[in-house]
């Protein structure tokens, strides 16, 4: 074999070895440190908002849910909100069957399609669902201010899994979130998006302001709430986004709900 052929083989072997070493080093480096990259399309972000519904008329109303402060200053009991009912609307192949129409049985496909339809309906509804009081009354006349949650407006669909998770987040974060009342009063439209990364057991690994509100005090109050939480519930699998910094969730802290 000519010497040139040996040299070429040696060069190829060397390059493959270097390739492996370099790639391995890159992977190890990225696994150890560095900022999380955007691993999702920024446009593909769902806004899941919580909306309170007005009280119904017809009888003397109950007092607002927070219990009166006893004279001895004992802590107040926390009101447990009701779980919302599933009001999701999408095409149900079972009903098509009942009508006698021929439907092929592709259970796995159907589950996937249903999940996709559910997600799409949820995303679609969140953008422009009707949110007026009249709509709410028609939708749920017996709802109460503190016990019922709607998502993207009361006439929109409710995703029970998302609702449960949001309730869990709310119970942890709201008691710790203390923006100054003057700031909230003077800037009712502001909101802060905070990105949070969780360990698999829910401990907060990192957090940062993704979109500032423009008011430093408000942003810091949001970060303080997250920091004081120390641990947050892990989102449902459908909403779970894993990055190298951990499980990422994004929380919007909104000064006031302009829809109310």
């Amino acid at each position: 074999m000519p010497a040139g052929t040996d040299l070429q083989a040696w060069a190829i072997a060397l390059s493959l070895g270097l390739h492996s070493c370099l790639a391995g080093t890159l992977a190890a480096t990225r696994g150890c440190s560095g900022d999380a990259e955007p691993l999702f399309d920024p446009d593909d972000v769902m806004m899941i908002e919580m909306a309170a519904l007005p009280k119904s008329a017809g009888r003397l109303p109950d007092r607002a849910s927070r219990a009166p402060r006893p004279a001895d200053g004992a802590p107040e009991a926390m009101t447990q909100p009701q779980q919302p009912s599933d009001q999701m609307r999408f095409e149900d192949p079972d009903k098509e069957k009942e009508k006698g129409e021929k439907v092929e049985d592709h259970s796995l496909d159907r589950e996937r399609l249903l999940a996709e339809a559910r997600r799409k309906a949820l995303v679609d509804s969140l953008s422009d669902a009707p949110i007026g009081d009249a709509d709410r009354q028609q939708t749920d006349p017996d709802s109460t201010l503190d016990a019922t949650f709607g998502f993207g407006g009361a006439t929109g669909p409710v995703d029970p899994e998302a609702a449960r998770y949001l309730v869990e987040l709310r119970q942890v974060l709201l008691p710790l979130w203390n923006p100054l009342p003057k700031v909230v009063e003077q800037n009712p439209a502001i909101f802060t998006l905070v990105d949070i990364w969780l360990d698999p057991d829910g401990r907060i690994a990192d957090s940062e302001v993704q979109t500032p509100s423009g008011n430093g005090s408000f942003d810091q109050a949001c970060l303080t709430a997250v920091a004081r939480a120390r641990r947050l519930p892990i989102p449902p699998a459908r909403f779970k986004v894993e990055t190298r910094k951990g499980i990422q969730i994004r929380v919007s802290f909104r000064a006031s709900d302009a829809r109310l």
Binding site: F40, D44, M50, A162, R244, Q248, I249, R250, V251, R254
Partner: peptide, 13 residues
């Protein structure tokens, strides 16, 4: 390694 869509969980003061 993202497995889902990043949802924004909205909390209102």
């Amino acid at each position: 390694r993202a497995q889902g869509t990043l949802a924004t969980w909205g909390l209102t003061y």
